[in-house]
Amino acid sequence: MEPFAAVSYVTVTLFGLFCLVPLWMIVAGSLTDESVLGLNGYSLFPQPFSLRAYELLFTGQSLLNGYVASLFITVVGTILSISCTAAIAWVIARRLPFISRPLTMFAYVPMLFNGGLVPFYLLVTQVLGLTNSWFAMILPLMLAPFLIFVTVSFFRQMPEEILDAARIDGAGELRIFFQIVLPLSKPILAVLGLFYAVTYWNEWFTGLLFLTDPDKFPLQLILQNLISNVTNAASLPSSAGAAMAPVYQLRFAMTVLTVGPILLAYPFAQRFFVKGITLGATKG
């Protein structure tokens, strides 16, 4: 083997470990007995092994509430995002006279200039009145101009003959979009779905701004509360026995359960992300 190849194997493997060790420490910590965690503050091997935190979390109400909130935001948000992104992207990609170009500029300008936090905050709280609503975490993220343009460049590669054939057969614009374009666009729809879904699942900034009712907190916001004060973990399981709650272990377990769904979906979804980035980076 050439020296550079050998160095590459070693370096890439080390970087891989660098990426995985923090995750592993969280998983190991969540399975380690509180007595050790309280002493070292972390654990590399789950010893002594303990499932107490998970037992407590699964019997309490907080975890369920958090999952319901996160799932609602992610599922409803992703559906809205995909539909609106695909629709506006198709109208731009159609190259309609007097419509497509202005629409391109219309969607492009916000990438250059935005109003900033205060007007946005006033809009959501005063004008739309979305305080304490999950939609305050969905609507602001509904469209990502960048993903619109990625979708446009995908649509523009659609073979013109198919569309012409449909037109000759008398299909209307709506029919063409829903019955021909969308079924042919599954790869880009998957890319959109995954990017939006991860964004919604990981979102916490809008929650910090607009949610005050702890019962409505999605998982990320529950975790945020654990960062500012580890003893908040004691309130995660039902109140009984909260005084003896393993607060450190609970924090780790909650983190694992928050990353869990992404970790599970990742092996299947990864290739779509790579495709999406590549599409975006090289513009089709």
Partner: peptide
Amino acid sequence: DSLVLLLLALPGIAWFLVFAYGPMVGL
């Protein structure tokens, strides 16, 4: 047909008006 396509883009246009251009006015 143009009208139909414009309707298709309407949710997106509305979103941009409210969430992207609205805050600019709020400045």
